[in-house]
Design a protein around this nucleic acid. Structure first.
Length: 125
DNA sequence: TAGGCCATCTGGTCCT
DNA sequence: AGGACCAGATGGCCTA
């Protein structure tokens, strides 16, 4: 049994589609399928406009080296958590005099990723 | 080629 | 009832 749900179908295309797809019962199956496709479209829209935009916004707040480094979603979440910890450390230890001691896996140093990143920025000036 | 990542679909649950 | 949210499944793309 083939499925026809992997298409993005515009509202205008539905009438055309009804005549092509061999639905068993046009009065019941088609409206249900149409509802499903509408739900799919909403979900697509939600993922693109809500979830992904939120990830993009969060990404902009995370300093990396290089700054435009591509991060996956899981990396964004993990680094955001690390960054919060880093900022928390900074809050309690004062300014950048004392880099916090979280280990950076990324650079294999004893300095945390964000202290490392801001040190590199400073050195470039 | 295997593994990671992502978009999309789907059905279930919750909320208004 | 309909929409939002969520998690699991699936298939495609990319990279080491």
């Amino acid at each position: 049994m083939e499925t026809y749900t992997n298409f993005q179908i515009s509202e205008e295309s539905w009438e055309q589609l009804y005549s092509v797809i061999p639905f068993q019962n046009n009065t019941e199956t088609v409206p249900a399928t149409k509802q499903r496709c509408q739900a799919n479209a909403r979900e697509r829209d939600r993922t693109q406009n809500s979830v992904n935009m939120a990830f993009n916004a969060l990404r902009l707040l995370i300093p990396t080296e290089p700054p435009d480094r591509k991060l996956s979603k899981i990396e964004i979440l993990r680094l955001a958590g690390s960054y919060i910890t880093h900022l928390d450390n900074q809050l309690y230890t004062g300014e950048m005099e004392q880099p916090c001691l979280m280990k950076s896996d990324e650079y294999n140093t004893s300095m945390c990723t964000f202290c490392w990143s801001s040190t590199k920025k400073t050195n470039h000036r």
